[in-house]
Write a protein that binds this DNA or RNA. Sequence first.
DNA 1: CGCATGCTTGAATTTAATCAACCCTAGTGG
DNA 2: CCACTAGGGTTGATTAAATTCAAGCATGCG
Lengths: 249, 249
Amino acid sequence: MLQTKNIHHLKEVTNAALFDGEPDSLQALFKRQPIEHLAAGQSLFFEGDIAKHLFEVVEGSLRIFKIISDGRRVITGFLHAGDIVGVSLKNHYLYSAEAIVDVRVRRLVRKTFEAEIARCPDLRPEVFSHLCDEMAAAQDQMVLLSCKNAEERVCTFLRKQIKRGSGLQGNGVLVELPMTRLDIADYLGLTIETVSRTMTKLTQRGILCSVGRHAVQVMKYGVLAQLSGDDEYYSDERAQISYAGANHH
Amino acid sequence: MLQTKNIHHLKEVTNAALFDGEPDSLQALFKRQPIEHLAAGQSLFFEGDIAKHLFEVVEGSLRIFKIISDGRRVITGFLHAGDIVGVSLKNHYLYSAEAIVDVRVRRLVRKTFEAEIARCPDLRPEVFSHLCDEMAAAQDQMVLLSCKNAEERVCTFLRKQIKRGSGLQGNGVLVELPMTRLDIADYLGLTIETVSRTMTKLTQRGILCSVGRHAVQVMKYGVLAQLSGDDEYYSDERAQISYAGANHH
DNA sequence: CGCATGCTTGAATTTAATCAACCCTAGTGG
DNA sequence: CCACTAGGGTTGATTAAATTCAAGCATGCG
């Protein structure tokens, strides 16, 4: 493994007899677990390691990625507060996870998680739903990587950040981008230069407005949506700021 | 929807009281279902439709794909005999499925499937395992689409076909390619011309040997594996024909 | 036999990658 | 507190890879 920093020195936590009542969500399973801290750049786990734990992200953002033979990195996703990682795994982690900024997580032993799911049938639909969402996200990413040009990729990415940010979509919304340009590039299958150039062009066209390194303001949400290449025909009524409810389907 | 052909005229089958004993595999759930036939080119279901049924492919091959706004098609995978489709779905199909050649399938109502899973705890690990495999395949595809060049994509694809074909990997193995070049192109995120040129070059280099339109013989498996860009360090002992057991992990 | 479809091959074009230089800024230490 | 520095980011010129456009070839089916 390439990285040197990790948190394997943290003591193992055993998760015996944790719940009096029935947990009502997957997140609830993590409630009793102590919070662990990860500094920016530290690894949570490595691709190929035995998947002993699941994690809930309490605060901060992480990247999940694979390293391929020639050393290149593919970022398959980002994790943010509220996300749970490790559900769709058998024995080994399929990817590495690394903190982008300082992060707080809770950890749950897999066996405990599985036992709780077995014990609480009400949680099973939520696990299943989680897996389906992961699958749908993976499919969307395949579409992006298969078909979309640089501009469409960047716009799609920005829209995704908007959706999982304030929930507000419309003109004037601020989009936080905790990750670096290299992270974005490795996520979108582009180079850092192409990402930079594309963002510059969007700024020049008045669609974006740069706010430091780690945020942009979306000045023309409608145009951004158009450029993302995802056909959604209800362009006009959502052009102004509106609250994005549960992800439709 | 663009396609005109479909099999919606087939009568609805209700799946009441099907099993005396415990089914011992997901495939077993389909055993009692009548076989339905699909001619090449016919659709099994469409992206966006309510996902009422799951299917087991008994014979033949299908493509699963999405159509994006500008009409382009992304093939997210192929299905072959023994495969089950529809497990990782909530209410709607995430993609369309179309027969590549004449196909035989068995159909199971989702609710029946879910009831059987609820009734037979032994099947749950198999469902979970299925979902994880789907996820892992999606991740591999993301890596391919993110990083790999045309040659690596084609070689990766051919290796995949080899693995799910005879199970034999080595020199002289025949690879069946029931799908068209356009299917392969849409699956690999390339154009038909690039696929064709790449295959031609591999043939010129003596790595492949064309056997009609829908098959190739692999003359130098080792080289093909190298060119696929997936680092697997055990090159030498598997260079000769050997049986590929269960997918390691 | 003749057509249509799928496939191959070639030339020109386009997009993004690569190579290279420079800028900005956040963080460091004097 | 300010200057310096390193890393991340931007911009420009060139190159490479795959796409696009165009033509021709094979194969399978009526």
